[in-house]
Amino acid sequence: MADPQILLRDGPAATAPTVSLDAFAADTNATAVVIQPGEDARVLLAHLDRLALVEVTFPAFTDGRGFSTARILREAGYKGELRASGDIGVDMLTHLQRCGFDAIAPKDVLDADQIKTALATWPQVYQATVVDGRKPIWALRHGQ
């Protein structure tokens, strides 16, 4: 399990030990799970209540499946920690946040100043991802 370098919410990082998705299906006591890019997050939807931590791996920054995984879990109402781990560059931070991640565990530690700059890059956003709670530009334009 990768400890998060960045927390995008208040409170401490989740500490429950993670198991693989296969093991999670068999172990009804597990409260933390790791999802790999090729695995279907929707198999977790029936168990969201007992989950405290879902770690989504990014073995390579070029593989963006984890972005969909995150949104799918948040769209279904998952409230626990959603942690991105692996090959994560500073330019991905805002996108991860917008897809619902609230904890980031990059393989290579990121520079603190760059993190600050990156998170402040976008004044507004064009799309509603819904899961980040941000109002898109079209909503602002039409007073919604």
């Binding site: 920054f61 963006g64 972005f67 897809c99 956003v125 064009y126 799309q127 991802t129 530009i137």
Partner: peptide, 13 residues
């Protein structure tokens, strides 16, 4: 165009 600009889910297709 606006929807697809910086769409956070679809930048590493």
């Amino acid at each position: 165009r606006q929807w697809s600009s910086f769409h956070p889910e679809f930048l590493a297709l």
